[in-house]
Design a binder for these strands. Structure first.
Lengths: 355, 355
DNA sequence: CTGAAAGCGCTTACAG
DNA sequence: CTGAAAGCGCTTACAG
């Protein structure tokens, strides 16, 4: 177990200076501070209560917190198992709100007795994640993947399954196919878009840019999407919606407007829990196991904490898969659906699987 | 800020003994241990890193964790705001898994630098909550209410709104009305049942015990419920389902069996987030604001931490309310619904509100 | 089972 | 901005 004294010795300063750095005391020269933090991270320093080291593992929001989302709660579930098994504690932090001015992320973590962090990222927090990784603080990102070789992450590869999903629509006879990705861009959604384009290209279908939509990852994002689609003169006959709650919102609004799913509009959603079973008809979807992502994130972090010096950056790639349920069917005959409020028949396509 | 030394002085033992107690060292006499812990709680002792006190607030599962539920994630959201504002940290703990043998709950918390705890309770963890309260550790319960005057809790009163809900069904003309409560009994569900019975009694409707159901707070709990109802020779024309996810499961299975909602079966659900908008038709429901419960829980805990000695036990009662949406209507004519798979018409009742 | 003493780990005036 | 020194808070052999 490394101590302030040991780090002081390594860096060639006094223990007092190391302590000041860890406690974000501003009266330390920039260069000294950097060297101390680097040494502290290298030695996997953790503060002690008396002679007992602190044991916090943090789940960290690097941008807007989204604690209520199915993805985030599943990640927490996945994390907590391993954390408890190792006798560690799970702390939830908000990097934006908890960091003091002129404080590095490492300082923010060390002040709180945090040993390692699982970073919940979105596209607009790439820099923060890279910053934390470059400081050398033990961390692993979920929700984004990185080209930067210093950043450790867990990623669910959704491009191939998204391609399969789009091909499923093409095979059903659809040609006017829309895609709707998240309003906040991130690499996961970019992958799903890429898989979609792969399919279109492979099957030689020209993609009409008017069929590319963006929506917020909220119910009303789906509402807006369906309203836009319903207002089109040549609406798509199918849409791939790359977020669970947006897809659910789209289901609701389709009903509201009398757009039948799947007869008037086939919908492929994305699911990381069991949202696909909550809507009716059950949702054909690209699926990932978010609990497994959380579990993998802890494994990666644990590996990082175990080794004394940073050698190779551990990463883990999980798979996503495509499930056909009742929300996709061959394109129907209805030429215009705008404003029409026909009887919603029970003529739903059979689900191919249940549970 | 109280220290081991100070507590030692108060109790009349050495600091070493206090330290042993806090670290769950078994070599301390039972009576001494009790006195030390009592004094430590009274003094609101928290461990320090050097001269800095630790700052953890714990969200504690006292029985089965249910991190994924809408209720729990909303509570966490509500808690985290206040916690961050006060510069504290939110830790998630599992009382069952983290406690060592022969350790009191206070010891478990103090070992981890926890200042106060929000206890997530169910009916079968009443004793644990009362135990923690009787130890004098700063705690507030959510999810249950208590007769025990030592226990502090935040409670959403659902009896009156549940009565209103049942009266709504009676006013629509329903007489064969069922209720389905949680498989794990708790005081919230008991209240909803009581409110239901209040209405039946006030309107002089005899309640048929065959219309009293229990189900797990999972989708398939709702599935089982609807199957049982569909198999009855004289099925109810309406059901009040006191849990969000069970209600959603019931919606799904009703579709699956061709039981039309609300024509064949009116459903009143319970909602603590926005589940009622995700199903179709939108769900008439008794509603509570679970985020507000989390916020209130932190306020109560903060009050407990602030005062040096335990005087009156702070409690807070929030309201629930009843919202009419599309899943309730006058009873239909269909005599038997078993196995029938009729066209599901668009004839849904208008929602009275949206958002 | 307990305390006196040693001592670790960290922080903080104080001095420069 | 930094260190030497004082000292707080806690823990842990050691002795009984």
């Amino acid at each position: 177990m490394s101590s302030v004294r040991e780090i002081a010795r390594v860096v060639g300063v006094s223990p007092a200076t190391v302590s000041r750095v860890i406690n974000s005391d501003p009266r330390v020269a920039e260069t000294v501070r950097r060297r101390v933090l680097e040494a502290a991270n290298k030695a996997r320093y953790v503060a002690s209560v008396g002679r007992r080291p602190t044991t916090n593992i943090a789940f960290v929001y690097t941008s807007q917190p989204s604690l209520g989302s199915t993805y985030d709660t599943a990640i927490l579930q996945g994390l907590s198992d391993g954390i408890e098994l190792m006798g560690l504690d799970l702390v939830i932090l908000n990097a934006g709100r908890n960091r003091l001015d002129h404080e590095t992320y490492t300082q923010m973590f060390m002040r709180r007795g945090v040993r390692g962090a699982v970073l919940r990222a979105t596209a607009d927090s790439h820099l923060i994640c890279e910053q934390i990784a470059s400081e050398g603080f033990p961390s692993v990102v979920v929700g984004e993947r990185f080209a930067n070789p210093r950043v450790s992450f867990v990623h669910a590869e959704s491009r191939p399954a998204s391609r399969t999903a789009a091909e499923h629509l093409i095979d059903l006879g659809h040609r006017r196919i829309a895609i709707c990705v998240n309003g906040i861009p991130d690499s996961d959604h970019a992958d799903r878009l890429a898989g979609f384009r792969d399919a279109m290209k492979a099957r030689d279908i020209e993609f009409d840019d008017r069929y590319a939509f963006q929506a917020w990852a909220r119910r009303d994002g789906g509402t807006q999407l369906i309203r836009q689609i319903a207002a089109m003169s040549r609406p798509p006959t199918a849409v791939f919606i790359t977020d669970p709650i947006t897809a659910v919102g789209a289901f609701n609004e389709a009903r509201e407007l009398g757009v039948r799913v799947p007869e008037d509009l086939s919908i492929i959603g994305f699911d990381d829990g069991e949202m696909r079973y909550i809507v009716h008809p059950a949702m054909t979807a690209v699926c990932q196991d978010a609990v497994a992502i959380g579990r993998a994130a802890f494994e990666v972090l644990h590996e990082l904490l175990d080794r004394k010096s940073a050698t190779a950056v551990p990463r883990k790639v999980l798979r996503t898969w495509f499930e056909v349920h009742g929300s996709t069917a061959p394109p129907g005959q209805s030429a215009t659906i705008k404003g029409s409020r026909q009887t919603t028949g029970q003529s739903r396509r059979k689900s191919t699987q249940k549970e």
